[in-house]
Design a binder for these strands. Structure first.
Lengths: 350, 350
DNA sequence: ACAGACGAGGAGAGCGCTCTCCGCTACGGA
DNA sequence: TCCGTAGCGGAGAGCGCTCTCCTCGTCTGT
């Protein structure tokens, strides 16, 4: 192929409905009806229109359509609370959790010919940008994944009257739809797995206690342990990072040397714990069993591979998309929430 | 906050330019000029308009604007060649490489108030969707990251006359802009590191040889080795997967038991090689040094952490965005390419 | 003091599409 | 035979914005 004159499938001026109508010898309205399959059209005319569309290489102009339908057929996927630097961004985006969210969202949107716009909001101003973006009609609604519990974005979106669905219940009471996991149930699964493998001295590394999900995981874990006769369970708080998990494990070994089972509120902390245990010569799972949470990539790369509590993230994300599309189409319906059940994935660590 | 009557920052009918004009007592044109800072406007009038905008809660309608400007102020970020199932999607999106690309793109786009639309194209039909999406004016251009060398999307886009920038040089000669890495230089860095650590019997696990990048890495590696007196270097071809890296290492150990240094053309294969070496009781780096390529997450989770050749992915992605924006604004300028230099990251494996 | 130039606001024509009417034809029942 | 009705195509009015003129007022130069 020569560099200079590339073949022009699309010629200079893109063709319009008017052009197609002229070629097909019908009115704009009829072409529109064929394009949108909006009313019965005589088969012969339909064919003629289709031929004209092919001949002219017509592609409907989305801006013109949006202008009258007041719909962009686009959703925003907002990661809120992410840091602004490329490094932090890369960390968030590179997180397998994010990948699973995107995959779930896409799986619902793609069959509908929709594609998400990716946005990241952190400092005050970028949150306003998100709201402005939606208010300008760039997107019909927002799928919001907050990395922090106290994220103000849901409130902003709600008070602007824009459709949105959250991943995880908002910290404050808000008239907004969300999907979430039965975190307590996840804590219960972890407890039962540890007890089932015969552990007698069990501790837990919980997540930051201002995060509702971390609270719930801990509560479910504790309650189940208590119900099985373990009234006291040592708890150390981590920050959902591998380092904090390692530090917590050090402390646990220090204060409770006899520990033989650990539930970490996410896989990253569990991986940190495993590393510390190995350094201390405690084999996993023989000396100490470890259960993680999330079933992230860390669960697989960890040695040994982690037994963990899996969130059906893809399904949850797909449900978010479903809820949002539904809300965009029927703004009058009440907000809804869907809670998913976690699942225990047994690998080698417990 | 009550669930029923949320405060309406944006009232029912969004206000238009017309509304603002009426409130400010000026014409639509003047308001437009203020909004777009397109011409000098009398300070007093300007203030009045600004006040009216605040009072009405006006947000410009993007569809209407796009209709006349023929610009969507949106770019598509296309991952082409990705699998269609949620699992495969999650794998691609969860790849730290993708995260770094997104971070780089965002870092350039966000200051300009632009946000990328995420699209995945795999089978034939979804590629057409991407083209249709662009032709409808949903996005002004495409940033394309192909996972396979023989991806037909660049050709499709080019022949439709749509602006696009590729990550990595296209396999076929195409009038299209791209950014790429000096892969040969990367191969050279790997060779020199292995030689610098005193390795005498060096082999390489190269990537699929239909991928230009794999060829270049191999060529750069070989040439440097040859120049340093190592005329023959055993080569085993891998498929850029951890399994293929492991298999290649097995074969290398079998055919060349004396090997004491290995350059794997990506980190995943290097990780596979490390695992096999460990199983065979060869310590890394003492018995065998291993150098990877990419500096992906695998380089860090690998035991020992990999010495590897890093691509400045964020910068490359940002440059892609820059090139594309430039091309959208000046379609008549010739296509351009920018080649980045790799960097050796020394960790523990070599 | 007057002509010319310049600067700034207003009027109005669309951008390409959807959607509500309206009109025409064909057909069925009384 | 005639009217009611269903079905389908056409006409035309915007959707909210930008942008090109046009007009008018003011400022400069002689």
């Amino acid at each position: 192929m020569l560099m200079s004159e590339a073949p022009r499938t699309a010629s200079r001026a893109p063709s319009t409905l008017e052009d197609v109508a002229r070629v097909a010898g019908v009115s704009r309205a009829t072409v529109s009806r064929v394009v949108n399959a909006t009313r019965n059209v005589d088969p012969a005319i339909r064919e003629a229109v289709l031929a004209a569309i092919a001949a002219t290489g017509y592609a409907p102009n989305r801006a013109a359509r949006s202008l009258v339908t007041r719909r962009s057929e686009t959703l925003a996927l907002v990661v809120s609370g992410a840091g602004g630097t490329p490094d932090e961004l890369a960390r968030v985006v590179g997180d397998p959790f994010f990948g699973r969210v995107v995959a779930g969202v896409i799986s619902h949107l793609r069959p509908r010919g929709m594609h998400p716009v990716l946005m990241f909001a952190e400092a005050g101003e970028t949150r306003e940008q998100v709201v402005a973006f939606l208010r300008q009609g760039n997107a019909d609604g927002a799928l919001i994944v907050s990395t922090h519990a106290q994220d103000p974005l849901p409130e902003l979106i709600t008070s602007a009257g824009l459709p949105a669905v959250l991943f995880a219940r908002p910290a404050a009471l808000l008239p907004i739809s969300y999907v979430d996991l039965a975190h307590q149930e996840g804590g219960r699964l972890a407890a039962e797995q540890l007890l089932a493998t015969g552990r007698r001295s069990v501790a837990t590394i919980c997540g930051p206690l201002d995060v509702p999900a971390a609270q719930d995981r801990l509560a479910g874990f504790r309650e189940t342990m208590a119900r099985r006769g373990h009234a006291y369970v040592p708890v150390v708080e981590g920050q959902f990072t591998q380092e904090s998990g390692a530090a917590a494990m050090e402390r646990l070994l220090d204060e409770h040397p006899g520990v033989d089972g650990v539930f970490a509120a996410n896989d990253l902390m569990a991986a940190g714990a495993c590393e510390v245990l190995r350094e201390h010569g405690r084999t996993v799972p023989d000396a100490v069993a470890v259960v993680g949470f999330d079933d992230s990539g860390a669960a697989l790369t960890c040695r040994p591979p982690l037994t963990t509590v899996r969130q059906p993230v893809e399904e949850m994300a797909a449900e978010m998309a479903r809820l949002l599309v539904e809300r965009v189409e029927h703004p009058d319906r009440p907000v809804a929430s869907v809670i998913f059940d976690p699942q225990l994935v047994v690998r080698e660590s417990a």
